[in-house]
Design a protein around this nucleic acid. Sequence first.
DNA 1: CTCGAGTGGGAAATCGCTTACTCACTGTAG
DNA 2: CTACAGTGAGTAAGCGATTTCCCACTCGAG
Lengths: 356, 356
Amino acid sequence: MAARTRPATIADVALRAGVSQASVSRVLNGKQNVDPAIAARVHDAVADLGYTPSIAARSLVHGRNDTVAMVVPDLENPLFQGILKGLSLAAAADGYRVLVADTAEQAGEEAAIAREARHRCDAIVLCAPRMPAPQLRALAPLLAPAVVVNRSLDDPAVPTVGVDYARGMRDLVEHLAALGHTRLVYLAGPEASSSQAERMRGLRDAVTAHPGVTVDTLPCGSRIDDGHRAGEAAAAAVRAGATAVIAFNDLVALGLMPRLVELGLRIPEDVSVAGFDDVPLARYATPPLTSMSVPRSELGAQVWSRLRALIAGEPSEHALLFRPRLEHRTSTAPPSPARRLAGVREALLAESELPA
Amino acid sequence: MAARTRPATIADVALRAGVSQASVSRVLNGKQNVDPAIAARVHDAVADLGYTPSIAARSLVHGRNDTVAMVVPDLENPLFQGILKGLSLAAAADGYRVLVADTAEQAGEEAAIAREARHRCDAIVLCAPRMPAPQLRALAPLLAPAVVVNRSLDDPAVPTVGVDYARGMRDLVEHLAALGHTRLVYLAGPEASSSQAERMRGLRDAVTAHPGVTVDTLPCGSRIDDGHRAGEAAAAAVRAGATAVIAFNDLVALGLMPRLVELGLRIPEDVSVAGFDDVPLARYATPPLTSMSVPRSELGAQVWSRLRALIAGEPSEHALLFRPRLEHRTSTAPPSPARRLAGVREALLAESELPA
DNA sequence: CTCGAGTGGGAAATCGCTTACTCACTGTAG
DNA sequence: CTACAGTGAGTAAGCGATTTCCCACTCGAG
């Protein structure tokens, strides 16, 4: 029976086995050659006392504690959940655990929370989409070893792993354009979000590449409710001639769709809707949601691979950017002929206005 | 500029400030009265050196590290995500951080993972729905201070926080019965899951209380895909006379509904569908999903309240059980008259068969 | 038989911090 | 004027492991 009073220490084990602490340590860590007889006695003593080495003491000596921190703005976001899952599993395979710190969208606290979390761990994964770039640039080096997720950063010591949102957006616009859509609406995410900025960049590139296509941006947000609330505005835009809506992410799209239906629009007959992230529920939505698939777990695994290298003192690897893959489902389809004509007319009108 | 070489220690600070380490420690921890002049010099030195006390060393002295572990079978489950979020936020308010350990549904590893995680932390939150009761009973005391989530355990030292699934199921059946449903189908969760067992108990109680109601149980699972796959069987049951389906949880229901529609059934005209957990997406499903609401974040907060008390050495509080609240949405409605008659006829038939 | 290399195990230093314990010094009461 | 609280700061003893250093001992070669 294990001692109820005070957890056994290595000294207790040494005493009981009649050897030195050094020997106990050597046996337990498989260092050097140890007399089998001693090893046996140590093992017996360990078993009798129910001894487990103190993590704290070991950490003090080694200067590391086999734990990495992950700072996220919102644990409820499926993207971060996926990354956390992937990271946590990959890290566990190497004997590391993950500490989570939810900043609860308190952008102001992010830096302090990150430093505190980092201080408890050997390394850190930072997801801080809202943090101003200068602040991030100043913070990142202090956090090393660190990996920044989902935003770019030109610090050679801090690798980034992320998603090519701009490219994804372009691909998505091209998908819609190929279907025949020319007037699109984009429900924008949080203004300060860096991935929102990336998406905007992608949209601009896309309309530049496709002069016939226009995109109206409507403020929205990143959560289900935001999408639902944006329904009115989106429907109005559709009535004004738009034929497709791109949502900041799937949550927004999933909140939006029922609202559009409520407002009398059919998807995809009256309006196509596309999301981003390809959350598990997207394919079971009504109608199944076209989305840009992002490998969430894989992101987490790659983050760990980067982090492990950094911890081992290896030079930082190259930035990694996943290109989202289009998951074409039934929420996007060619616009109905009538609507399409209307769109073309609008476009012509807009063009004819230009010279004026 | 902070030293790039080796992080500053308290000794460096003491040296630079020209005082003893003890004084530095006292200043930094606000113990005793210290000469303001000394305090100032210490603060200057700390700032100059960019000193932060080593967590490991402090942990070693104090015997605690202000971290609690949370073990979950699957980080992708919205229930655990919600609990994690609530726990993490509540704990952070008291200066504690949360370490997550995803057992990846490896029921066999759970005990080992839990002990390892516990060993790194001051306390632990255990979610192990699949662990056999005897094993859990044996394990729990070794983990103290610990709180067990979502299952009962008669260990006075280990409080539990959970959901009254049996009661919730009864309430749900009563809701459906009140609507006029008499032949229900239940898509069961994982066999080994304790909350699944609780739900079954609730179902049994309900049919006992309502002799006119019958419930057929179909094996299913706990995830979206499981629900989708169970669509065929559920539809068959409906064709055989059932008028309502209760899903193990919302994920299952959300996977099930589109499949039922695909198979030609209308919800709720042909079949009512109800879920459990009230995940955020439930109200935006098509049709909006009736569900038993579970206060996920609140569960996490309550878990922390229990855990904090235990860490402080206070006696364990009473077990806490939340009663789910019905969220009646449009996925459940009275059965159509024709179908209802069919149900009654079946019931009469079944009754008349009894004496046989 | 002696000397040197090789090896296993114990003593003690170390990691960085907290916290008794001790001591010098000030101020006041007898 | 002496002595005794009271106070603030320094010294040093842990906390529980790992790891270096060193000694004693064995074995083989000369």
